[in-house]
Design a protein around this nucleic acid. Sequence first.
DNA 1: ATGGACCCTGGAGCCACTACAGAGTCAACG
DNA 2: CGTTGACTCTGTAGTGGCTCCAGGGTCCAT
Lengths: 141, 141
Amino acid sequence: MTLQPFNIGGLSRQTGVNIETIRYYEKIGLLPPPTRSQGGFRQYEDRHLQWLRFIRRGRDLGFSIDSIRALLTLAERPDAPCEGADRMVALHLDEVERKIADLTLLRDELRAMKNCCGQVVAQCQIIGSLTAPGAAQQDTI
Amino acid sequence: MTLQPFNIGGLSRQTGVNIETIRYYEKIGLLPPPTRSQGGFRQYEDRHLQWLRFIRRGRDLGFSIDSIRALLTLAERPDAPCEGADRMVALHLDEVERKIADLTLLRDELRAMKNCCGQVVAQCQIIGSLTAPGAAQQDTI
DNA sequence: ATGGACCCTGGAGCCACTACAGAGTCAACG
DNA sequence: CGTTGACTCTGTAGTGGCTCCAGGGTCCAT
């Protein structure tokens, strides 16, 4: 419940969003430009705080800038149907699940190559498995 | 067992690495420059194929260009100790595991917000949980 | 000789920031 | 009222790891 407008530094502290990033969001039209002081300082109000927190939360959830733009547009129209939002979340969830699956495979491969046990590169399982996937104890390239 | 040198297109087909990417790797000094034909075409040999497969495999495992550079330097010295490689894999594994943990939390949050069940944005759980994390059925911003 | 597939260079663009230089503003303190 | 020091401004360039493009040149089979 801030009553007075605050500077970009205050907005940054209250949201955890970098000052440079806030200016960047304004430049790309993601955050509406605030009024300015006589000297040209940006003066933010509570609505900017809400808006930026929405953005921040979206980014934390891994949504792209474009997706957040779409979600913000939706959020501004309370009586619009929300299938759009539902679809976006579903798509993003698919993506995240795919990424987890990929990384899990990766993790297993990395675990398998760990502890190369040889003492020099010539016997190294790591170098070997990079040289010829699935095999160890190969010659170096 | 290619006996004749081949063009960049051949190298690309045999490794699955984009032509532009191959040239990029050469430019940043990751792939040694091949000889050239009279007309200036790059002429690759088997050693380039091995080298690029090593790079490709490293990238597929998620290693950074810099890490791959270090691994390649190691791979060239068969009698060097391989602790370096071991350490790099361990570090990378940590990173991958952290990323999986992060994405798993994300996935759970996304699953929780799915099926917004309201029909308009004003009741939408998705928009709500972006507006105020952890809560649904909020006013829009 | 010609056509079409291939290749060359240099530069710009992508995403989502982040860093920096050089200048100006604000508010508190003396 | 002046000074100090924290804060802010604009504009530009850089990050990683590519990817794409324009405008030209090369290669080889026919």
